[in-house]
Design a binder for these strands. Structure first.
Length: 577
DNA sequence: GCCGTTTTCGGCCCGACTGTTTTCAGTCG
């Protein structure tokens, strides 16, 4: 699938056109198409072959031809030509905060800056001060931008910052004069990674709120503080931006600061069509406010139901909302159990009774213990003898437990030849079998895809664990042909996991959407190695919601009996609970 | 580059902030 490659080329093309001062709307058109192609749940080659590609809003004849050209020749002539017009190291400079295309074009043409190293030399040499429109303050800003760019460690996973973000909102709501406070930005949309945390508050006394906010104990450093907004640094490197608005403007402001940018653009377009204007202060007819206090009211005046923040990415949700066909998304409260938890029998830190207690406290009806198997020696994977013993202990524990059932499961290794690590007679005795790849990540596409398809076709395998193997920001997915995996899963009825662990979220949102379209069942599991990690179910539910998943597609929204029946193992259901 | 019953040409989201300005350009979200 070439979607990602094509998206990167179109995005680079946009960078080049921007630096060479071409029509900004053309630049935006390419950026938008790059995003659309990257988000596509299907192989762009199929859409080109069928001619459906130009039916996607935003993609016209011109770009469709370029994509077709890439698919047949491996190159796009327009891009190859454009690349010759600027030095290769220039596009990188667009990532420096405070430095934009105009200034980059200026230092390149006037000073011969061709790269980050060249920019730093120009800053040191102070030649840059001779350029029109550049003064000492601007030089200072660019220097600070370069430092920030060089020191930043990339985006953090949502799961790594969410607890802090939620604590900040709680603290904010305690401040006198704060009427409402919520997370906004990419955290509220539950994007898998975030750059900083945006928080919004409503108050009639913004200055006092800002003062109190900057004095919160968790604020380690105050980066900026004005009358309506402030930025502080917490927990090391994490930046929190607070904005305070009037209560009457809260809904419009929350929409504005939640984004995404593309969603906001779409809604402003809808407003324009109605002769209205939408900004962060409200929806206006001339100077008269039409709606502003709540998100629901602003959406309603635009002819839309309230669109859940997880969907606000301009991936078709606006059209669906207008047509009244938004999906009813799965909710955390509908999840009746966690299907992927490790205990101290393998590499987990909690005992099985501790897991059961914590799962019950979360309101679950069941929880599956799915420890590793013997070939994963590093994780103390279970031998056949030990898994049989564990099955017995869990049965005994279930006889004592009230209000929760522990399911006997396994996360069985998919071996390098596609067989799994336990024989059928062992797998048959388990309530749930997850099969996962934990080795041979470097295998070529055919081989690793074939392994996973073999596991899918194994009648004892219920779920494929973390199907792409990626670790966000650490390890790319293995070279798996996810289309083939999904075709096999759809054919056999095998579930694919939405691994909820914050560094995995695998399947990701767009793959969830593809799976749902194909009718593939999904299994939510946290992959917890300690009871402190069970909360990450929230992250998986959010990922599923971002993938337009309804409760009906999620196995663990089923009651225990229906789940076990679905897994084909009703006869092994524990009769005592 | 994309798009369209006000349009096949002429638009394309909106405002704040900053720094350089003397009326505005660049950047950001």
């Amino acid at each position: 699938m070439k979607n990602r490659d094509i998206a990167e080329i179109l995005s680079s093309l946009a960078d080049i056109l921007e630096i060479t001062d071409q029509d900004p709307f053309r630049v935006n058109a390419y950026r938008k198409i790059a995003r659309i192609v990257d988000d596509l749940p299907t192989d762009v080659a199929d859409l080109v072959a069928s001619g459906e590609i130009t039916e996607i809003p935003g993609i016209g004849k011109g770009t469709a031809e370029k994509i077709a050209e890439y698919l047949s020749t491996g190159k796009i002539a327009a891009y190859e030509e454009a690349k010759k017009t600027i030095p290769a190291g220039l596009s990188e400079l667009l990532s420096i905060p405070g430095l934009g295309p105009k200034t980059i074009g200026l230092v390149w043409r006037q000073l011969g800056v061709k790269s980050l190293a060249g920019l730093k030399r120009a800053l040191r040499g102070r030649k840059i001060l001779d350029l029109p429109g550049i003064g000492p303050k601007k030089v200072e800003n660019i220097e600070a931008g370069v430092r920030a760019y060089e020191s930043r460690s990339g985006r953090l996973t949502l799961g790594a910052v969410l607890p802090t973000a939620q604590e900040v909102v709680r603290a904010l709501r305690e401040i006198p004069g704060v009427e409402q406070a919520d997370l906004a930005g990419s955290v509220r949309r539950w994007r898998e990674t975030i750059g900083d945390i945006d928080v919004l508050a409503a108050s009639g006394k913004p200055a006092a709120v800002i003062r109190a906010f900057t004095k919160l104990p968790l604020a380690e450093e105050v980066l900026a503080a004005g009358t309506t907004k402030a930025s502080v640094r917490v927990a090391g490197a994490l930046q929190i931006d607070l904005r305070v608005v009037k209560p009457a403007e809260y809904g419009a402001a929350l929409m504005y600061f939640t984004g995404s940018k593309d969603y906001n653009i779409r809604l402003r377009g809808l407003a324009q069509d109605k002769g209205l204007k939408l900004n962060e202060y409200g929806l206006f007819s001339g100077t008269k406010v039409v709606a502003s206090r709540t998100e629901k009211a602003v959406h309603a005046k635009l002819g839309l139901p309230l669109v859940p923040p997880e969907l606000r990415e301009d991936r078709g949700e606006v059209e669906a909302a207008l047509a009244g066909s938004l999906p009813e998304l799965v909710e955390l409260s509908q999840v009746r159990g966690d299907l992927h938890v490790h205990s101290n029998w393998s590499d987990g830190g909690s005992t099985i009774p501790e897991v059961a207690r914590a799962a019950k406290a979360r309101g679950y009806a069941y929880v599956a213990i799915t420890d590793h198997t013997k070939s994963l020696g590093i994780a103390h994977g279970l031998s056949i003898e030990r898994i049989l013993k564990q099955i017995e202990e869990i049965a005994s524990l279930n006889r004592r437990l009230k209000g929760i059932t522990v399911l006997s499961g396994t996360e069985v290794d998919i071996l390098s030849d596609g067989r799994v690590d336990f024989p059928d007679e062992v797998l048959e005795r388990l309530d749930i079998v997850i099969a996962s790849v934990h080795s041979g990540f470097q295998q070529p596409r055919d081989r690793i895809t074939g392994r996973i398809v073999s596991a899918i076709e194994n009648p004892h395998v219920d779920v494929i664990g973390h199907p792409t193997g990626r670790l966000i920001g650490t390890r790319p997915e293995y070279d798996v042909d996810i289309e083939r995996v999904m075709d096999a899963a759809a054919r056999t009825g095998t579930a694919l996991e939405v691994n909820c662990y914050h560094e995995r979220l695998d399947l990701n949102d767009m793959n969830c959407r593809r799976a749902v379209d194909l009718g593939i069942p999904l299994a939510l599991g946290t992959d917890s190695h300690h009871v402190d990690q069970l909360w990450m179910m929230e992250l998986g539910v959010a990922t599923a919601r971002r993938g337009w998943v309804r409760a009906g597609s999620v196995l663990n929204t089923l009651p225990k009996g229906a789940l076990l029946k679905r897994l084909g193992r009703l006869h092994r259901a524990n009769p005592s609970s």
